[in-house]
Amino acid sequence: MTGYLLHGDVSVGDTPPPLGVDVTATTVVLGALASRDWRPMHHDKNFAVERNGTQDIFLNTPNQAAWFERYVTDWTGPTGRLGRMTFRMNTSVFPGDHMVFDATVTGTHVDAVGCGWVELDVALMVGDVATTTCAVQVALPIDDDDNPWNRRGDSWHPDSKGDN
C-alpha cells in the first residue's frame, strides 16, 4: 500500500492540519444515537439544563472519541492504526460552538517488534478553550511494505512507550 503517511515522514513538533466543525443540535443528537448513548442530556435540553446544570445538550464522550479518530486518520490515511487514546474532558461542547481540532507530534519511536509509533497531543478547541484533550498513540507503516493492521498478538503492543 503506497501513498500514505510513513513513520519516517513524521517528526516531533509536526502539526497536522486543523479541522473545524460547526456544532449543531443535530451533530450532538446524531453522534449520541450513532454511539447508542440514549442518556437524555445528549438529546433533551430541559434535562441537560435542569439536571446537569449545563447550558444545553452536549457532545457525549464516545462520539468525541469518534471525532478524534476521524481527525487523526484524516492525517495518517487508512494505514494509520490507533493504539491508545487518553481523553481528558475539561468542559462540554454545545450546539452553536465552532470546534477546532489541532495537534502536535510529541514523540516517535519504533518498538521492540519493529512497529513504528507516533504520539500526538490533540486538542478539541472552542474559541481559546481546550474543551477536551487527547493523547494519541498511532502506528504508522515503517515503509511501503509494512502494514500495522497485520500485527497480531505478540507483534502488537499498543502500550509501547518511547523514550522521548
Partner: peptide, 28 residues
C-alpha cells in the same frame, strides 16, 4: 455523524487489502 471518509469503512477493496475485510472504527 463524524463525516469520517476513511476508505477502510466505505471501500471494500481497501478493507480487503489492509485489514482482510471490513472492520469497525476502533473508537466504536
Amino acid at each position: 455523524a463524524t463525516e469520517n471518509g476513511n476508505p477502510l469503512f466505505w471501500d471494500e477493496a481497501v478493507a480487503d487489502e489492509l485489514t482482510d475485510g471490513p472492520i469497525a472504527p476502533p473508537t466504536m
